[in-house]
Design a binder for these strands. Structure first.
Lengths: 201, 201, 201, 201
DNA sequence: CATGAATGAGTCTTCATTCAT
DNA sequence: TATGAATGAAGACTCATTCAT
């Protein structure tokens, strides 16, 4: 005799187990911008008893941290491929990277601000081991490869450039969040690419 | 004739009135990274009765928003001057701006993450009128002036560059906050300046 | 499978569920004249955790309004039957009605004065649908029936008389509540009945 | 050198002293139906410091009880004279009394419900010695005099009738206060008088 | 005597967590 | 192993009262 299944899973083939179901639910709520992220609200949304959470997670924060991670992966999966070094033009490739980063942050940052205010969530989130390579590292690798292939100048500051590109993506989203009235105009992608490639001088 | 002074202010010359004292206390707690930012905790830290807060602020969020603002001003006041366009070398001036921005964000961002998770604080903060110009605008103005004086190329993408410089400052601090073990190496200021001025090509 | 029962209900057969237990407790406190009707006091009296109330009621006022209603029903249930029109003497029947009304108000009014000062309780109380007919309506119906049967004069002012009978019941209780020393002598039931039946002329 | 006068009294000749000024202010607020009857609100309305109240009254409740009394006297003063026994018709005189009582209660009861929920106010109110004769006693006296002059039957139950007349005045106002939708139709004054005079038989 | 800021006990309410069933 | 009611420790906020000036 197998143990009882949660009511929410009995007539559903979507979620293999309750743990994933809970994470998925919390992820959806975080992404949607649900105003209430209480344990009860998540359980209700998941059609599941209040207490189950504690059979799978140490506490609320662990669930939220995992949901946040899932959210990032979900967003990344929907973003399309990044360019291969050495193929296509540099302009085009950088444009792709910048566009990718802007979209990534635009969709993730709201979720982050809603959850990372809680120090315990932050700690748990940081402790999660990220499988796969985050975008940032892939950008650095791309730039290094291009430099090694001679398509960038030999002394190009690729780490610095990568940091700035990543940074501008944060910046754009943050300034939207902070603006009270109409959101400020984000910088043009072409201008960013031009600035990165040709500098100010 | 005059009413009684708060016990906390009687033997102190630091704060002229209780309102400032409360803001200063909250500011210190935010800056220090106090884990509990409850009304009670602030009152206790200020050596003051629980209820006083409501003699001076509409609610907890107003106090926190004001404390956050005070914190930003305090940090800015300790940062030294920004360069005049047309004087000194471009490298030196940009280095000053980048160093300024990094320091500013390093000291402010932790406070922001701890308070801006609460939407009501965010709203109140955004509603406060900021006297003076924020660093970001001054950076843009500086770059424009240099371009107009011919020290930058005529078609330099100054807005894009400014966005990247501001962004990298966010980036550095955020990646420190998220790192679980040893903090990652921040990009070198010289490299950033070089990348901005000369580009990758 | 089933969740835990409240400690207060475990060794008790009086209340089937906690909702009824809470209403009954609040009712008892209201009836007894408890001076403190705070949420905490009710929870303590019910031997129950502070928060439970909010699992069953929207807020404190809803509980109090329901308790008040329960109180009225409890009092009514203990009062004995009202007379049928056309049977027995008019004097005897009216005496029964007056005695009924006096007892009803004597036991209910204190509870009302303690709770209806709070507008929110008043609003919630008024919104509760009363099953069955209040005494007032039954008195009016009784008088009408007697008149239709010819036992009262054809032009008898039954509505006015009913209003006065109901009113005197209020009056008696109110004057007891307001009196500081010894309570004033309530009017004799027989005198009231005589006055109602024969008038002053 | 005379002591300082309260700011509110300096440019005013209306109130002889602060005590009366405070009572008058509280009375006005009670009568108007002000939703907030806090010490602070009264002081603000009176243009006076928060603390003065305690120079003239033991506590908030004493002030409210006195204000309530003043309210009753004010209302009574605006109501016109009551009839003399032996003059005019009985119908007309009783009509005057009933009308008087209805108006009196209509204007006083709201104030009472707002304040008498607080047991301490009730106690203080009951302890106040009422100068002059309340309406109730004057009604009883009137009826007795009419009976002694032979205009009412010798065995008329005047006390009972008075109680009913007073009671119906309560009743009318209370039922208006309790009604949720449209207020119920109050009984006709003529019907009341007829019922009192001629009875139901 | 008036002032009015400070006091702090007390209020309602939320919500993460536990645990008998 | 799921259930979901019970728990109770906070939390924000109010307001009568005091008292140094």
């Amino acid at each position: 005799m197998s143990p009882r299944r949660a009511a929410a899973l009995r007539n559903s083939q979507g979620a293999a187990n309750l743990r994933e179901h809970l994470i998925a639910t919390a992820e959806r709520m975080i992404a949607t911008g649900a105003d209430t992220l209480t344990v009860r609200a998540v359980a209700a949304e998941a059609r599941v008893a209040d207490g189950v959470l504690y059979n799978y997670f140490a506490d609320k924060e662990e669930l939220l941290a995992l949901a946040l991670h899932a959210h990032v992966r979900t967003v990344e999966a929907g973003l399309g491929p990044l360019p291969e070094p050495g193929r296509g033009t540099l302009e085009e490739n950088l444009r792709t990277h910048v566009t990718y980063g802007l979209a990534l942050h635009r969709r993730c940052l709201p979720a982050f601000t809603r959850t990372l205010g809680q120090p315990k969530v932050l700690a748990r989130f940081a402790a999660i081991d990220v499988p796969g390579q985050p975008w940032r590292d892939r950008l650095v690798e791309y730039l290094r490869a291009e430099r090694d292939q001679g398509r960038l100048r030999a002394d190009a500051r690729v780490d610095a450039a990568a940091a700035m590109i990543v940074g501008v993506c944060h910046e754009v989203v943050l300034s939207v969040m902070f603006s009270v009235g109409e959101p400020p105009q984000p910088p043009d992608v072409d201008d960013l690419v031009t600035a990165v490639l040709h500098g100010l001088l």
